[in-house]
Design a protein around this nucleic acid. Structure first.
Lengths: 326, 326
DNA sequence: TTGAAAGCGCTAACAC
DNA sequence: GTGTTAGCGCTTTCAA
């Protein structure tokens, strides 16, 4: 920068202004600076500028799992929502391990990102607040009580209810739920399921899995082989699991939906594929990203209140896996 | 840091040493520093430490498309390969747009990352070299001629050949290829296809699409509706496209593989699903990530030569879409 | 082992 | 508009 200034015959400050294209630089000097910068192959060290300016224009984003395309959809929404805001995104993957997740958040904070967005955080509110140290946060797919942390999600309880109501309406009475690990803070889908089952006077049946296709398949195979009475319908925690369940059923020669009807949750791209035809509860993933981006921008701009929750309404997408007519 | 030093009754330099757990600090002082740091809620500003130390211990990683799970596999490999190296990863998504990609690379470089890994770069070698400004680079899924940039890929030409040989062996003679845009630098799969077709004295037939499920589907529907003579087998550039092609065929009431056999490329998770059963050419995505991570670590350590290419051998995975017996 | 001093490359007031 | 002067918060000699 020193060199560029000398070469262009101006001061370092002027170079700095040009680099940030400030309006208060004369066109002549501007081109002079730009030319010598090009000649010398100079580009500003952003580490230094960030350190000096206390602004990084970078947002840290944490995803639970890159293999679940619902996070790709959320990412699309975030990118779209952040486009033109001058912010860039730094992605980390947490793998459903609170330790890894918090490590990533701390890392973001140590780098002084302007904000942290978490899509699929599995730890506690206290740990997050501690790791954030006052950095603005937005949590997607979950409702969290924490100062300065907004929540953006789709109503998971309602999703569970929608699934059961749909299956009940089709005449099903033995409806099982493939749930996730007990310790995970994502309980609302299960609760919605349990609530609706009770409302209809039905006996709930829970099986635990791990949110993956492989997991859903394994748990279902095990279940089918156990000789337990088979449900006529299954509501799975997410689409990946639901697809795994469908694979297990196919492997045992059972037909979907005539032997067992399936409903997933998330409405990922593959669920909609005619090859799969999975009935699912749309979480509006892309819009979650969009809304979260806006919430973060508001929070950074200081125009946000203490901590808001934005909850979207889920939408039932009926397909072949629950209704052959669809 | 000043405060911590005062609180612990030591100098700032000592605090710095403790924070980087240097071995040359007495245990007593160490705990004293750690305690006052905890008491004051201090954590080092990594921007500052990076600026001063000229090392960021961060690698920039660029992915072509988060919706294609082959990149999630590559990411898994990278994480595994980098685990324990003390490096963290910063992800950006390029969306097959050279401008966006170069922008991301420049951004990485301006932040002084220690290296840049590109999985699915679509621009030119010159532009990349210019954007990198000497930062070590590793390109995955492509062979690039550039100083200080290693290439890690699976033999794409061979993949194309494998696909055709497989289909020829099954008796197919009218084998079409669903290709990608002409301007993209990923031409080897097509060339392998063309080469093998010529070898067998067959007439090649190319259709262009865009590497996505939706794109593959659209192009196939259009093709089927055009009334052109239908091939008996199709080799698609990647699995996403192949799945789109299968959807289009299903939509027109054509059976796979009896009416049309399909071979994809990448061997993504869903290809292996019994619900899809797509024959594919495995690119060993996870291993690509692993190898790329190692190449980058070597390059950063300075133990790498000028620019090496590591090429893996693709593997044919036969499934239902080409062979009902599989 | 510990401390003092000199940067890292840039931004931000302020004065010119 | 343009230049001057301090820092930003840490690392790094180097001497003690």
């Amino acid at each position: 920068m020193e060199d560029v200034a000398r070469e262009a015959g101006v001061s370092r400050a002027l170079v700095s202004l040009v680099m940030r294209d400030s309006p208060k630089v004369s066109p002549a000097k501007r081109t002079a600076v730009l030319e010598s910068a090009a000649a010398l192959g100079y580009s500003p060290n952003r580490l230094a500028s960030r350190l000096a300016s206390h602004r990084t224009h970078t947002l840290g984003v944490l995803f639970l799992d890159l293999h679940n395309s619902v996070f790709a959809d959320i990412h699309d929404g975030l990118s779209a929502g952040l486009a033109g805001s001058g912010n860039q995104v730094m992605v980390a993957v947490g793998s459903a391990d609170p330790r890894t997740e918090l490590e990533a958040v701390r890392s973001f904070v140590d780098l002084r990102v302007d904000g942290v967005i978490l899509a699929g955080y599995t730890g506690t509110s206290e740990d997050l607040t501690a790791a954030l140290r006052g950095t603005p946060g937005v949590v997607i797919t979950r409702e969290l009580e924490a100062d300065g942390v907004d929540s953006v999600l789709t109503d998971d309880f309602r999703s569970g209810v929608l699934a059961v109501e749909h299956l009940y309406g089709l005449g099903h009475r033995r409806i099982a739920h493939v749930d996730i690990s007990d310790w995970l803070p994502y309980t609302a889908r299960r609760e919605g399921y349990l609530h609706a089952m009770r409302q209809f006077g039905l006996e709930p049946q829970l099986v635990h899995s791990d949110m993956t296709e492989r997991g859903g398949r394994a748990v279902m195979e095990q279940f089918l082989d156990s000789g337990a009475e088979r449900p006529t319908a299954i509501f799975a925690h997410n689409d990946l699991t639901a697809i795994g369940v469908m694979e297990a059923l196919a492997g045992r020669g059972l037909a979907v939906p005539s032997d067992v009807a399936i409903v997933g949750c998330d409405n990922i791209e593959f669920a909609a594929s005619p090859l799969i035809g999975l009935t699912s509860i749309d979480q509006h993933a892309r819009e979650l990203g969009l809304v979260a981006a806006q919430a973060m921008l508001d929070r950074i701009a200081g125009t946000a209140g203490p901590a808001a929750t934005r909850k979207l309404e889920p939408a039932l997408m009926v397909r072949r896996s629950s209704d052959p007519a669809a």
